[in-house]
């Protein structure tokens, strides 16, 4: 397993370096941020002074060298917009997104395993058709619309939930999590169902049934373990999407996460924050991918055996 992990980490280093370079060059292609940060009537001298202070007057190779040297020390500089250290801003925002994504995926996977498995146990039954309809609807609903409707219906009309914000008890999690949950849940139910239909028709399941195993034991004790690999793969991809930034939820519900921070830093040409946020997100996504691979290896011995010692 250690060898497996080492190999995956080494193979991730090159794409990670490409991300570091890519964000540097793409950010600078969006234009000089001077106009955004100086008064409209700032003189040419003031603009030149500002550029020099921020290092924008250096050649691109010189800027790149400084950036890489600072990044190696995990120093991404200071935000142009707020004057705060970029690393600090990103580290403040990231846990918010990570928790939203974590709770969402935990609920989505649990719900999908239950609903998808039960639907697959009797294909084409009423429960199966209802589960398919539910999952396809969930996977198709635009999250922006769902979020705003949630605010208006459950926040304003019914008054059951707060409209937005981060202060309060569990109720403040309901609308943001529901908005984030709906699509992953829909997709995962379909994946679980498909995978379980195939697993439940396998010979070992028939043997288990013939030995008198209860339906719940057949589903969750025998078939699910072998059907879980594709679910893990899809769940990994969906988690990556959430970690990339739950922008809609963070924007509408006022959660100060990494997605909102990245969008703001792109619009404000706040290079330091953007670079720090993208790098941290990229590292997390690589770590997530490795975690998914490890889970594959744990659940499927063929994966472990495929890795040479």
């Amino acid at each position: 397993m250690v060898h497996f992990l080492r190999k995956r980490i080494i193979s991730s280093a090159v794409p990670l370096f490409c991300v570091v370079l890519g964000v540097f060059f793409l950010a600078r292609m969006t234009g000089n941020p001077v106009d955004l940060y100086l008064p409209l009537s700032a003189t040419a001298e003031q603009r030149a002074e500002f550029s020099a202070a921020q290092g924008f007057d250096l050649s691109i190779p010189a800027q790149l060298w400084n950036y890489l040297a600072d990044a190696a020390r995990l120093d991404f500089g200071t935000s142009l917009r707020t004057g705060q250290p970029a690393t600090e801003m990103v580290l403040d925002a990231f846990p918010v997104t990570l928790q939203l994504a974590g709770v969402t995926m935990l609920l989505a996977i649990t719900g999908a395993l239950l609903v998808g498995s039960l639907a697959a146990y009797r294909p084409n039954s009423l429960a199966d058709r209802f589960a398919s309809l539910l999952s396809m609807t969930a996977a198709s609903i635009p999250d922006f619309w769902f979020a705003v409707m949630g605010v208006l219906v459950f926040g304003v009309s019914l008054g059951w939930l707060p409209t937005s914000g981060t202060l309060g008890g569990p109720e403040i999690w309901v609308l943001p999590i529901a908005t984030l949950l709906i699509r992953p849940f829909g997709v995962l139910v379909q994946v679980v169902r498909g995978s379980m239909v195939s697993a439940l028709s396998a010979p070992y399941v028939k043997i288990a049934r013939s030995k008198g195993a209860t339906p719940l034991r057949v589903i969750f004790g025998h078939a699910l373990r072998n059907a879980v690999t594709p679910v893990l793969t899809v769940a990994g991809d969906l988690t990556v999407g959430l970690v990339n930034g739950a922008v809609i939820v963070e924007t509408i519900f006022g959660w100060p996460g990494i997605g909102k921070l990245m969008i703001d830093s792109i619009l404000q040409r706040d290079f330091a924050v953007l670079q720090a946020a993208v790098l941290l997100t990229a590292v997390t996504i690589f770590a997530l991918n490795i975690l998914v691979d490890v889970c594959h290896a744990l659940t499927d011995p063929r994966v472990r055996q495929a890795v040479p010692a």
Binding site: Q99, V103, T166
Partner: peptide
């Protein structure tokens, strides 16, 4: 255990933020 930790840590952040409109 993982789920409990995740949810409780999430709630902790939400509650500790304490800076909403109130």
């Amino acid at each position: 255990l993982a789920g409990t930790v995740l949810v409780s840590s999430g709630c902790a952040v939400a509650n500790s933020a304490g800076g909403d409109a109130g």
